[in-house]
Design a protein around this nucleic acid. Structure first.
Length: 208
DNA sequence: GTACAGATTGAG
DNA sequence: TCAATCTGTACT
């Protein structure tokens, strides 16, 4: 069972979307090739009152305009002059909130069946060609998925080259961990301490 | 026109 | 743990 996440998923509040995206899949169509990754880490930037947000105080700049679009639009921008950061606008149009996608577990539909050590039983495993380390950080996942400025404002509810799917996996509440968001100390202790980073406990692809 | 930060990364 | 990295942004 695979179903594309539709608009109504993304028009929910960012704190809900950030948690609900764990265990969902990112799908990127690159010509004939399709890259799929399970979302294992996100962060919520829930609104203009949050001083860690690029839209703090309803500030509008050419860069952050996509944050004001209705849920489902891509807000992508460059940090450190070299790394793209993938965010998805959430909530309603005109209110700036978004979710940062921080890490993916690369996924392969083709599970290889091979003999185990004793050569008695078959075991299923992800092909070695898929590295666990290609998308375990916000900059790396954009590099892997070949996402850049050309995706600015892309609508993942309708895009033919980039979207999200629910593949039926259920994440138990006990598997979800939270913590403070990364790299936003400038926002001051009150906002920096908010536990708005969500990740799947013990997953090898979570960043840091 | 330009100083400079920056939601990072990877090497040591 | 720490510094290299470099371009778009947001100022003057």
């Amino acid at each position: 069972m695979m179903r594309r996440l539709k608009r109504s998923f993304f028009t929910q509040p960012s704190l809900w979307v950030a948690e609900a995206l764990l265990g969902k899949y990112v799908v990127r169509k690159l010509g004939k090739k399709i890259l799929v990754g399970k979302i294992v880490e996100t962060e919520a930037y829930p609104g203009p009152y949050d001083s860690a947000s690029h839209a703090y105080g309803m500030k509008r700049t050419p860069r952050n305009l996509a944050e004001y679009l209705k849920g489902g639009h891509v807000y992508i921008y460059l940090v450190y002059g070299m790394y793209w950061q993938l965010n998805i606008a959430t909530g309603r149009a005109g209110f700036p909130e978004c979710v940062l996608i921080r890490a993916l577990e690369p996924f392969s539909d083709k599970r290889h069946a091979t003999r185990d050590k004793d050569e008695k039983n078959f075991v299923s495993h992800v092909p070695l060609s898929i590295s666990l380390n290609v998308a375990n950080g916000p900059g790396k996942l954009c590099r892997w998925l070949k996402l850049d400025k050309s995706f600015y404002g892309e609508d993942v509810a309708t895009s033919k080259r980039f979207w999200f799917e629910d593949r039926g996996a259920k994440i138990r509440q006990s598997e979800i961990a939270t913590g403070p968001r990364v790299g936003i100390d400038y926002a001051g202790p009150y906002w920096a301490k908010k536990p708005w980073r969500f990740y799947i406990r013990n997953n090898p692809c979570v960043s840091r």
